[in-house]
């Protein structure tokens, strides 16, 4: 981990991973969604609308996974003052927010024909909406301070506070009566999804992970270079004043 604290080494690692992440993203998303649209069967109850799941479910997983990654990076940044960790968290947030938005909108598009409503305020849907607002708040907090070290600390604390929401999202369908169905894939009895529907779902999910790493590698590079440029300009200005 200390090796990764060095921004230059981290940038080299990210550049090395990037083509593989891009390949996983493109192959996973094209194969997974192509399979889901063209080959996999309709569901015995939902009919063709089940295909929305191939977008909705991996997006929901990514929304939660990326928030967890932000919370862990924020804890590392707060405790060890790890400069790369807080930029990984910052660079992840727009990706997580994008997946959360996709999850909410596709869920709504599924809910109208299946449940009979675009939206209900049950525990699962409400906690997922809160996750979206946490992402927006986290991004806004970074922009709210001129001093990046103060912005980083405030945003990291918000990320940790918001992490309480993750188990609430996951277990909301078990703890309370919700309109949303309970877990289908990660259950004690094993997946309750037929393999013909499960496989494209899992391949799409792998593609979505690849997409996250790919975009993260671009955004983290931007964050690190911007911060180094800022430091260069600051020290140049200080030199000019001194000289």
């Amino acid at each position: 981990m200390h090796a990764l604290a060095n921004p230059a080494r981290f940038l080299r690692l990210m550049a090395a991973i990037r083509p593989y992440a891009a390949a996983v993203a493109i192959i996973g998303l094209v194969v997974g969604l192509g399979w889901g649209l063209l080959i996999s069967p309709r569901d015995y109850q939902q009919g063709e609308t089940v295909r929305i799941m191939y977008i909705h479910v991996p997006s929901a997983w990514m929304a939660m996974f990326i928030y967890a990654a932000i919370a862990v990076s924020s804890a590392v940044a707060l405790i060890w003052r790890h400069p790369v960790a807080e930029l990984v968290a910052k660079a992840s947030a727009p990706v997580g927010a994008a997946f959360t938005l996709i999850c909410l909108v596709t869920g709504s598009l599924w809910g109208k024909p299946m449940w009979g409503t675009w939206w209900v305020w049950d525990a699962r849907l409400t906690s997922m909406l809160i996750l979206f607002f946490l992402y927006l708040g986290y991004i806004a907090l970074w922009e709210a301070f001129d001093d990046p070290s103060r912005a980083g600390r405030a945003a990291a604390i918000l990320a940790l506070v918001g992490a309480v929401n993750l188990p609430i999202i996951k277990f909301s369908v078990d703890w309370w009566n919700t309109l949303h169905q309970p877990a289908s894939v990660l259950t004690l009895e094993g997946p309750k999804i037929h393999p013909d529907i499960l496989w494209p779902l899992l391949i799409t999910a792998v593609g979505a992970q690849g997409y996250y790493v790919w975009i993260l590698s671009l955004r983290v590079r931007a964050e690190i270079l911007n911060r180094q440029a800022r430091i260069l300009r600051f020290s140049a200005a200080a030199d000019r004043r001194a000289g």
Binding site: L33, L37, R42, G47, E48, T49, R51, I52, I55, H56, V105, T106, L109, W110, K112, P113
Partner: peptide
């Protein structure tokens, strides 16, 4: 899409 094109295609 089995009559649900208006929901499936906007999602994708």
């Amino acid at each position: 899409m089995g009559g649900h094109a208006g929901f499936v295609w906007p999602s994708f």
